[in-house]
Amino acid sequence: MEFTQVFEPLALDSLHDFALSRKEDGWRYVQTLAVNKDDGVDLVYSFMKNGALVNSVISDVPRDAEVPSISDAFLAAFVFENEIHDLFGVRITDIAIDFEGNFYRVSEEYPMTIISPEQLAAREKAAKIAAAKAAKERAAANAAEASAEAAAEAEKPSEDEEARKAAELEAKLAAMDPEKAAKVRAAMEARAKKGGE
């Protein structure tokens, strides 16, 4: 038995029929999960058969959509469907064992849908990094086209200098006893990190 995993799209309308056909074909129900998005959720349903793990992703389910329960086909799903209702506020209809919002008693309603300041900051940072990377690539492409030779010449010395210094240090470290060398390396890494921030 070999393990494989795939992610494939699924439409919300066909979810229930899809679950029934999975049941018919002898697949094992693995799990259901939700991922919070700005205006809705992604739902991931996983099934497994002979080592093949298939994750069916329903993208961008609107918050007010009604999602049919698959717990009539796979009873084990009732746990996750109640959980998704309580934490993400997704309306799932006809759950076999329906707790009607009392599965978890939490202090705030639908806690997983709240976008925390940390998450927002992380997203902004990621967007900035992506933008900077794109800009850099663009600039590099432009430079290469315009004056490839000159730019390369200008860049080279400083790079060479750094590489030479690093090589010298490596040689020195190799001569030291390993424990001390490891300490020096750790200190250098810490410094580099500090400088980077």
Partner: peptide, 25 residues
Amino acid sequence: YARGNGSKNLERMRMRTPTSQNLAG
């Protein structure tokens, strides 16, 4: 299950543990 968002923090991390699967049983 894990999903990235381009930053050091993951967008979503999810564990489906054996006991929650066995509750129906």
